[in-house]
Design a protein around this nucleic acid. Structure first.
Lengths: 327, 327
DNA sequence: CTATTGATGTAGAGCGCTCCAATCGTTATG
DNA sequence: CATAACGATTGGAGCGCTCTACATCAATAG
């Protein structure tokens, strides 16, 4: 920087002003500095800049599980929006709450301007604590917080759509393989139970503890098949576990949807594959990523302080894993 | 830091030594400092530390495509190895060479100690340039460089396994939907062509330009179906495009493997799903991630200078999308 | 009993930038 | 024509840490 200043015949401070595109610099000097910088191959040191200034123009992104296509979709939206607004991204990931905590701290230590946590497993307290350091927006998990923004789909409604669909088809013994500790899993489970009761099917409520993974779907279905009155339909916590469920049912020689219907959640690209063709609940994941950036920047740039909670509506996507139960 | 020093009754320098776990600090003073730090809730500022020192104990990871499960697998290996060695990770991603370039620079600007680029689309020159700033290890793409380490599977051999398998089944008209600009795509295409010739099937070589995406598989197969003599087997550049191919064939009402056989590449979890059950070529992606970290740290910690190129052997995984051609 | 050594601790100069307060020309104003 | 007012520029004090060179001191050696 010193050298650039010397070569351009100006002060170091002016170089700094030019490099960060400040206004109030004469076009003449700006050229001079830019040329000198180019000739010397000078590029500002981000570390030093971040240390000296408060803003870093960087957002941290915490992704819960790289194996779940949902997160790739959400990230697409985040990426697009961040690019458009001139922010760079730094990604980190768990797996598991402990690793997630470290990843989060890692991001904060680098002084990101804000954090977007997608489907975090982190305790709420951690998120709130992080929010005191830099604004946090949570995607895919509801949180009643007066400070943290959330962008979610209405999981309870999504579950309702799924169960309604299955009931409409004539199912009564509808089981649920839940998402365990996963973000939104509790709300989905709650929606399932509630809707079952609303249909007078309270006696048929059957929840198997699972997770948002394929393996969990396999295990969950194994358990269900062992029960004395196996369900005719299985509503899974997400697409990944639904796909695991399909595999397990296939293993058992049970036709889907002839003998058992399966419904997933998320409408990931996976479910759209012809050979899977999973009936599922769509949530606008990419859009949610975009909204997360918007909402974060409202706090960062427009100085909004109160929390905003956006709740998007899920929709049913009917494919070929759901049909009337066998007679 | 000043405060901690005061409270512990020592100098700032000693606090620094304790915080970075230096030896030659008496147990007594160490306790003093640690206690003071705990009481004050002091935590070293990573930015300042990175600015002042040369090492940051951080590795940058450049992932080509979050939608491709291969990268999630590779990342698992990287993560595990980095954790074990005490390095933190910073992830960035494209898509596309331009974004990748920016992501790469972004990582270098943060002074990561090294970079692992998984399946980069970046021009070799960019990688070489980056390597002059911080050691770079490339995964999944061969590069003849005297400085950059590479961890790859033998793509040409993988293609040979695939083609041999199809030929053994009796196929002659075997087409290839390639990976376009994707990492390793050229080698796979080369291996395919070579093996076809070796089997005296040079006249049947038919390559459709594609990409490592599902969409490319769909488009590729559409093209093949339009030809006068459609193939009886399609070897796709990777699992994602193979899955797209399966979808397109299904659309066309062509039974797989009854009418057309399909073989993928990567052996991602996707291909193992019962309803996909894709015959594919396995490459040890997680292991490759682990090796990438090892190799990077050899340069970082053990001072190795020459490049090391590791070539792992792929294997054929036979599932249910390949069978003899129709009579 | 003094010189040597090795283990500990400390002072202070950076790392490369931002940002505030102050300065310097200019032009508009009464 | 003096002066307020404003835009453009600059000096220099940090940001929070590391690191080199040097100071200390008890233990060991000669």
């Amino acid at each position: 920087m010193e050298d650039v200043a010397a070569r351009a015949g100006v002060s170091r401070a002016l170089v700094s002003l030019v490099m960060r595109q400040a206004p109030n610099v004469s076009a003449h000097r700006r050229r001079l500095v830019l040329d000198a910088a180019a000739e010397l191959g000078y590029r500002p040191n981000v570390l030093a800049r971040n240390l000296a200034s408060t803003r870093t123009m960087t957002l941290g992104v915490l992704l819960n599980d790289l194996h779940n296509p949902f997160f790739a979709q959400a990230f697409d939206g985040i990426k697009a929006a961040a690019d458009a607004r001139g922010y760079r991204l730094l990604v980190n990931t768990g797996p598991g709450p402990v690793d997630e905590q470290r990843s989060l701290e890692s991001l904060l230590e680098l002084h990101v301007d804000g954090v977007i946590a997608v489907g975090p497993l982190l305790p709420t307290a951690s998120l709130v604590a992080a929010d005191r350091v830099a604004p946090v927006t949570v995607v895919g998990r509801r949180l009643r917080s007066r400070t943290i923004d959330t962008i979610c789909n209405d999981d309870a409604l999504g579950s309702r759509l799924a169960v309604d669909h299955l009931v409409d088809l004539g199912h009564r013994r509808i089981a649920h393989v839940d998402g365990g500790p996963g973000a939104g899993a509790a709300a989905r489970r709650g929606g399932y139970e509630r809707t079952m009761h609303d249909h007078g099917l309270g006696a048929h409520v059957q929840v198997v503890r699972g997770a948002f993974t394929e393996a969990a779907g396999v295990v969950g279905v194994s358990q269900l098949l062992g029960s004395s009155t196996p369900p005719t339909a299985i509503f899974c916590g997400n697409d990944l576990s639904a796909v695991g469920a399909l595999d397990r049912l296939d293993d058992a020689g049970l036709d889907v949807p002839g003998v058992v219907s399966v419904v997933g959640y998320d409408d990931t690209p996976l479910s759209a594959l012809h050979h899977i063709s999973l009936t599922t609940i769509n949530q606008p994941s990419t859009e949610m990523g975009r909204l997360a950036v918007d909402s974060l920047l409202e706090r960062l740039e427009d100085g909004r302080t109160g929390a905003v909670h956006r709740l998007l509506s899920p929709t049913l996507v009917t494919r070929h894993t759901s049909a009337p139960p066998p007679p």
